[in-house]
């Protein structure tokens, strides 16, 4: 952080076009390569890897939306999976009972996530710190119980199963490669929208709240309204991610919005480095790979691996993957 803070002004003040231009070129090349890799993945990867990548994308969007709360606004939520689950149940229910097109289901999931976040968020954002953590846990657990008990709609503990394959314009996306591109597209839209929020003046105000809430209040910012708005936007992102999850998984169970999911996504954000959206994506990838890819083959020792990853990350990478990469704070500094 310090190193970056001293380096950045030097680059700016030098005003020399060359280093800055070269850096931009490097960034553009990196970005294009990354996008090409992401888009090209199903052409080279086998169906299982493609499906795992699809899950990573859904989980990454959830982590990105949580990062808006944790890293940007400074509100660590343990109950964020609740809105993820709300989105997943909404999209799943609409696909089963009405048979609507995939993108419409995603839109509905986004709206559902936002609405439930609005309905519950006003309670949560009044507190902060550990108490916010516990209040979101309580809200999440209550919604988890609703998913368990409201059997006529959610299917209870057996889950909402038999969700049909996603269709876009009447064409179904049963092939893992097509589904991956669909989810990638939706992920891209969600990611860019949240990035826009973070980089706007509204995002700057959220960071102000993160750094010094009393000061922001003294400056006349409606802090409560800002926090609630951030909570609702994060809920919308989680809802969209839930819609993507059900498109891939085709079953929703109460576990998808339980404490474990909430804790895992918080872990993903921390692994990535709270405050950097792309870091959250890497964190999500690590968590999903450990749990879904390596976990099942470890003779039941998946949780042990997860615990070790947890401890190592907290010690070795104080600012997450983004901190190690040394370019953390791009979003913050911008």
């Amino acid at each position: 952080m310090n190193a970056h803070a001293t380096v950045a002004p030097t680059v700016e003040s030098a005003g020399a076009a060359t280093p800055r231009g070269r850096r931009d070129i490097v960034r553009v090349v990196l970005l294009v390569t990354l996008v090409l890799c992401l888009v090209g993945l199903p052409l080279v990867a086998d169906p299982f890897a493609t499906t795992t990548a699809t899950r990573v994308l859904a989980f990454a969007l959830l982590a990105v939306s949580l990062d808006l709360l944790v890293g940007v606004t400074g509100l660590p939520s343990l109950g964020h999976a609740a809105y993820f689950g709300v989105g997943a149940y909404t999209a799943g229910w609409l696909s089963i009972h009405i048979g609507i097109d995939g993108p419409v289901a995603l839109l509905a999931a986004t709206l559902a996530g936002a609405s439930v976040a609005a309905a519950t968020g006003w309670l949560a954002v009044r507190s902060g710190g550990i108490f916010f953590l516990m209040l979101t846990l309580a809200i999440g657990e209550v919604l988890h119980q609703v998913a368990h008990s409201w059997r006529s709609v959610t299917g209870g503990s057996d889950g909402m199963y038999g969700v049909p394959a996603t269709t876009v314009g009447g064409v179904d996306l049963a092939n893992p490669g097509f589904l991956y591109w669909y989810v990638l597209g939706a992920f891209g839209v969600g990611y860019l929208l949240i990035r826009m929020v973070v980089r706007s003046s509204f995002g700057a105000a959220l960071r102000g709240i993160h750094d010094n809430e009393p000061r922001m209040r003294a400056l006349g910012y409606p802090v409560f309204g800002y926090k609630l708005a951030a909570f609702v936007i994060a809920g919308a992102g989680a809802g969209l991610a839930g819609g993507l999850l059900v498109a891939q998984q085709r079953i929703v169970t109460p576990d998808d919005l339980g404490f474990t999911t909430g804790a895992l996504v918080l872990l993903a954000v921390v692994i990535g480095g709270a405050g950097t959206l792309w870091g959250a994506c890497i964190g999500a990838a690590v968590v999903v790979l450990v749990r879904d890819y390596f976990g099942p083959a470890l003779d039941g020792h998946g949780p042990l691996l997860l615990g070790i990853v947890f401890v190592i990350v907290v010690y070795v990478m104080p600012r997450g993957v983004a901190g190690v990469a040394g370019i953390r704070g791009k979003e913050r500094a911008a």
Binding site: V270, L306, I308, F310, V314
Partner: peptide, 25 residues
């Protein structure tokens, strides 16, 4: 101890990791 100067969340997460490992042991 080494995390004393870090945010609460980091310390809580460290203990969460310890919890996962201990439960598995």
């Amino acid at each position: 101890q080494p995390l004393a100067s870090r945010p609460h969340l980091d310390q809580a997460l460290l203990t969460l990791g310890v919890a996962l490992i201990l439960a598995e042991l």
